[in-house]
């Protein structure tokens, strides 16, 4: 036969680079916006010139509403809300992302163990059920209170309460992938168990895992804020969004809304950005969509 691949044209049509770039931009707008906001937060936290020292209260300007000097106003000690909202990202974001990464590192192997058929998988799953019976936020509070208000313990608490998500997602994804034809094919060609695991199963869950890291980081921001709010974890004078919201909570009733609302908005924006990044990552790794 002389007719061959020539009559089955490859589906990837060559397009102009500009229109291709534009298509990517449009499809990945969420990833780009979320990523820029997050890096904006971090860059600002470390490099933005601040009008006031975030650690230096001004007793002469207590609970001032937003004005031309203090754009976001001041709190009841005379701290500048803008400066503290910006520098809070120095601790909040790295802790959240670090905790999420740690829970990924621990959660993936546990999830893989849970996905095996037999006693080990069953034992891991029952252990997970028992563990999840605890209210996780209270567990986080207990960890930080018992082990001390150190940053490592906050990261540890975040990691521990996020591990179950990673385990469950990795397990359910891997369970369905194990039934897939290409895994059967790999076994038919003599692939060992570890090759199946690392070449065929894990790469096909990488997209969803990365997305989950972003979601876990978003959850971690809430946890850090909640911990600070009840006075454990990052506590004043160290700046943290949660602690700021807490310190301003009492003033809201008397009309001084700015102390809590600005750090609250920062939390919302950080979480939305992380969710945008998660969505974008999942799209990028979705193999059902073509490259172009």
């Amino acid at each position: 036969m002389s007719d061959h691949s020539a009559i089955e044209p490859t589906r990837v049509a060559s397009r102009g680079t500009w229109s291709a770039t534009r298509a990517v931009l449009r499809r990945q707008a969420g990833l780009i916006i979320g990523g820029s906001l997050l890096s904006g937060f971090i860059l600002a936290a470390f490099f933005m010139p601040l009008p006031f020292d975030p650690m230096m209260p001004d007793p002469a300007a207590v609970l001032k509403p937003p004005n031309s000097d203090h754009w976001f106003g001041t709190d009841r000690f005379g701290f500048d809300v803008l400066a503290r909202t910006v520098v809070s990202a120095r601790l909040d974001l790295p802790l959240a992302i670090g905790g999420a990464l740690l829970s990924m590192v621990i959660g993936i192997p546990l999830g893989l163990m849970a996905s095996t058929k037999g006693r080990i998988g069953e034992a891991v799953m029952r252990g997970l059920d028992a563990f999840q019976a605890f209210p996780l936020l209270i567990l986080a509070v207990a960890i930080v209170t018992l082990r001390g208000n150190e940053i490592e313990n906050v990261v540890l608490a975040i990691a521990i309460i996020n591990i179950p998500r990673f385990m469950r997602i990795v397990r359910s994804e891997v369970l369905s992938l194990r039934e897939s034809r290409f895994v059967e094919a790999a076994v038919a060609f003599g692939a060992t168990r570890s090759r199946v695991m690392f070449r065929h199963l894990l790469p096909n869950v990488s997209g969803i895992i990365l997305a989950l890291v972003s979601l876990a980081a978003a959850h971690a921001i809430i946890v850090i804020a909640a911990l600070s709010f009840i006075g454990v974890g990052i506590v004043p004078p160290e700046a943290s969004w949660g602690a700021m919201i807490q310190s301003g909570a009492g003033n809201i009733v008397s009309g001084q809304w700015w102390v809590s609302v600005f750090p609250g908005l920062a939390v919302v924006i950080a979480i939305v950005s992380l969710h945008l990044v998660a969505d974008g990552l999942e799209k990028t790794f979705d193999t059902s969509l073509s490259d172009a």
Partner: peptide, 19 residues
């Protein structure tokens, strides 16, 4: 397995999408 091999019915499903 290098002496006896197999071709499956569903070509797309039998190829790892990440490779």
């Amino acid at each position: 397995r290098s002496d006896m091999t197999v071709v499956f019915q569903e070509p797309y499903e039998s190829l790892n999408p990440r490779m």
